[in-house]
């Protein structure tokens, strides 16, 4: 489904601020894979997602989606294949527009926006049914501006919007990190349900090792712009938090330096 070959991304190349974010990554994501990605700050997790989504273009290497070479496609063209949820719950929706208008944008993802009416009565009904599944009572507030909603509500809507049009790949970039624990748990549950029901190919970056272990069928650990661990299936199921910590200590050659890695 997604193939990444010899990917390399350097920021500010040739200047004193040069920063190698992705050193060299090769990865094949199978259809239906649900991959959780962990790693310390600066490991290149977010950069990797941004490269797949097309927000950044790589210095070297290629990205293929369903065999199509999309390396140099602009972000908006790639969006036809990709659903995305950002870390900041405010990033995924337009605050000055209503819930149904945001959904209309998502429902039209990957198609040219034309002069058809944005939200028809039928759209309204369909969106209402979708939003009812959240159980947040938002199905009665479709004409409210999204800016009036809480971060958790907005993140739930973003998640629903990302899957409104079935994406070939769903990218989740620490999408629960900015939410309070109960809301985070709720959004995570929704994530799991949506991915399972729709059988979506997904990549989820997280700082929470327990989430990384509990969710998905495959776990990838990144460090210094490289993949240092990639386990799937039965092997992943047997993995424990302690294993991951050991792995980290071993591969880094020192103790886990980043306290964020210790979120268990």
């Amino acid at each position: 489904m997604l193939q990444i070959t010899n990917l390399r991304k350097v920021f500010n190349e040739g200047s004193i601020n040069e920063m190698v974010a992705i050193r060299s990554i090769n990865c094949l994501v199978e259809k239906g894979d649900f991959i959780t990605v962990i790693g310390s700050n600066g490991a290149g997790k977010s950069t990797l997602l941004n490269l797949v989504a097309g927000t950044f273009t790589p210095n070297e290497g290629d990205i293929f989606i369903s065999g199509e070479r999309v390396t140099h496609w602009p972000e908006h063209r790639r969006a036809a294949y990709i659903g995305r949820v950002f870390q900041n719950p405010l990033s995924g929706t337009c605050a000055t527009m209503t819930i149904e208008e945001n959904f209309a944008l998502a429902g039209n993802r990957g198609k040219k926006p034309g002069l058809r009416w944005g939200v028809t009565r039928r759209d309204h009904k369909a969106f209402q049914e979708k939003i009812r599944l959240l159980g947040l009572g938002l199905e009665y507030r479709l004409k409210d501006r999204v800016g009036l909603l809480s971060g958790g509500q907005r993140q739930s809507l973003t998640l629903l919007m990302a899957t409104l049009q079935r994406p070939r790949i769903l990218l989740l970039d620490e999408h629960t990190a900015a939410l309070d624990p109960p809301t985070a748990a709720q959004v995570l549950k929704l994530t799991q349900e949506l991915i399972q029901e729709m059988g979506l190919t997904s990549i989820m970056v997280t700082h929470n090792m327990r989430h990384a272990l509990e969710l998905g069928n495959r776990l990838v650990m990144m460090h210094g712009g490289k993949i240092i661990l990639d386990v799937a299936g039965e092997e992943k199921r047997r993995l424990t938090v302690q294993d991951l910590l050991n792995e980290f200590a071993k591969l880094k050659g020192d103790a886990v330096a980043d306290d964020k890695m210790l979120l268990i």
Binding site: A53, T55, P74, E75, H76, R77, A79, A80, I82, R84, F86, S91, G92, T93, C94, A95, T96, M97, E101, A104, L105, A106, N108, R109, G110, K111, P113, G114, L115, R116, W117, G118, V119
Partner: peptide
């Protein structure tokens, strides 16, 4: 209030989101 109009309004509101919805800002 058309799809094009919504995309236009979104471009001023949240360009990153609009690009990730497949619209060229």
């Amino acid at each position: 209030h058309t799809h094009l109009g919504l995309a236009l309004r979104g471009t001023g509101d949240n360009p990153q989101m609009i690009r990730s919805q497949g619209v060229s800002t």
